[in-house]
């Protein structure tokens, strides 16, 4: 993903948004939007943590688990990648209570987004782990390490760095998907936008500002993941590959 256009466009859009907002008497709707923004950030963070956990568990189960666990992991990945995030959200929201499980809407939101992005993340983890060369595995056998030791000490550390950029993209996808939680009555940014739109009719201003906010968080995620990648790469071998 090109970095510079993103930043340039963020700055331009943000300024434009502020100009529009100041003309429009933004005091009417800005506090409400900020409240919603907080909820959006909260769900993004919670969902991301859950997604990473789900992805690693599912990917490692699919690759190394005994067959019943492997089967479960495959079913999880296929179902959550094969259906739509909104369907999953509604299913957890409306159908889970029929199993006697009633959760807070916020919990449902984090659960649905984490499970959804985790399924995509599982493929990222799997790809990165299988990209570690066979020679590395063979060296661990020759050194009499167990498979768990090999995975934990040798293979996963090498798989982590190449995983970071695709995870950055997934976190941005997750951020974008949080807008759907407004449809199960959570007062996130998208929900507040509609609410404010219905009361103030400042459609253009409100939705522009909201879009710019999402963009700003996306840029933040990109920048954070870039630094994380640079930091993590320092511990790994640099220069020409052996």
């Amino acid at each position: 993903m090109a970095h510079r256009p993103l930043v340039v466009c963020a700055i331009l859009a943000f300024t434009a948004g502020l100009v529009i907002a100041s003309f429009a008497g933004f005091r009417e709707f800005l506090p409400g939007l900020l409240e919603g923004a907080l909820v959006t950030v909260e769900i993004t963070l919670g969902g991301s943590v859950l997604a990473v956990i789900c992805a690693f568990v599912a990917a490692l189960s699919k690759m190394f688990g005994p067959w019943p666990i492997r089967g479960l992991a495959v079913v999880y990945i296929e179902i959550f990648r094969g259906t739509s995030a909104l369907v999953q959200l509604f299913w957890l929201f409306f159908v889970l209570p029929r199993f006697g499980i009633t959760l807070e809407p916020l919990t449902v939101a984090i659960l649905a987004l984490g499970l959804n992005v985790g399924a995509y993340g599982a493929e990222v983890v799997r790809g990165a782990v299988s990209a570690v060369s066979r020679g590395q595995w063979e060296a661990t056998v020759a050194l009499n390490m167990s498979r768990a030791q090999a995975l934990r000490r040798i293979v996963l550390p090498q798989a982590l760095v190449p995983m970071i950029p695709p995870w950055g993209n997934l976190f941005i996808e997750l951020l974008k998907t949080t807008a759907l939680v407004s449809l199960i009555t959570i007062s996130d940014l998208a929900f507040k936008a509609q609410e404010m739109n219905a009361t103030t009719y400042r459609t253009v201003e409100i939705f522009s500002i909201v879009l710019v906010f999402y963009l700003a968080v996306a840029v933040l995620i990109t920048v954070a993941m870039r630094s994380l990648e640079r930091f993590a790469a320092r511990g790994l071998a640099r220069g020409p590959a052996q």
Partner: peptide, 12 residues
């Protein structure tokens, strides 16, 4: 513009 559309929610 492309980065902008890609980085913001479809719903909005």
């Amino acid at each position: 513009f492309i980065e902008f559309i890609r980085s913001t929610p479809l719903l909005i």
